[in-house]
Amino acid sequence: MSNANGFHPGERRPLIELRRLFRYFGETRAVEDMSFKVYAGEVFGYIGPNGAGKTTSMRILATLDEPTAGDAFVDGFSVIDDPDRVRRRLGFMPDYFGTYQNVNVREYLDFFARAYGMRGSERRRAVGSVMEFTMLNKLAEKPIDGLSKGMKQRLCLGRTMIHDPAVLILDEPAAGLDPRARIELREMIAQLAQQGKAVLISSHILTELAEICDKVGIIETGQLLAVGTVDEISAKSQAKSQVRLRTLDDSRPLRAWLSQQNDITNLTAEAELMTFNHDGGQKEQALLLRKIVEAGFEVVEFASKTKSLEDVFLHVTEGRIQ
């Protein structure tokens, strides 16, 4: 029997949960029946084209907007009914800076530490450790207006984690950063996940997400099309993998043999080299190779191209906009 929060006794509570979330702006359906969970220590990547509903759902989680229907929970607290409790547990980094004039780095972090109710030595410790983590120590007295984009981004990440929240929501944190800054940001996020925080991160740079995310959610026109690890999604989506095959001599007999197989499409050949799409996973591909060898063909190369997050994204989404 589940309790009022919808959990069975002993079940692990997710730190982030979207439960049948809807958000309409007039006729526009920004978020449509979205549900997923993120647990402690997980990094959840949010992928979708512009206008897909990523920022809207993130703003709802951050208690900056309200859903038309459904609810979202942070550590079991409803964002609608208990925004004050949610705010204590959540750090939100929007896709804009939000900086003040005539304020330096230390004062900026100090202000937010105060705003989260920290006092005295606790506040000074928090500001110090955040500056150390984001490597802003040397810039402590520098006015924010004079910071580079990468430094501002670090400062915003610092502000997001000043009260040591269990949940971090990062909207396009790597946008506009140079490669070094991106790598550093990626390392920081990985460290935060290791500390047991649940991180929800959106980005357009899919390769970047693939490297740090435990799970991804693909969203288009407000709908969550797929959730899981990249492998799970590719398995579920049944995206065809591309196989490259090279024979020792004439490839025509093998081409004829392959064209009779049901799970092979888009077969092309150029001398000894053939490429085709295969419906199955790695196990099925191994079986196919064995069959080819048993049929007497001399294979010198059999390579299956691993599906990247980009392939999965392109396969799952249809490029719709609203």
Partner: peptide, 13 residues
């Protein structure tokens, strides 16, 4: 205007 109100409103103030 400067989008700082959002940041302020999600604090515990």
């Amino acid at each position: 205007e400067d989008n700082t109100y959002d940041l302020l409103s999600i604090t515990t103030l």
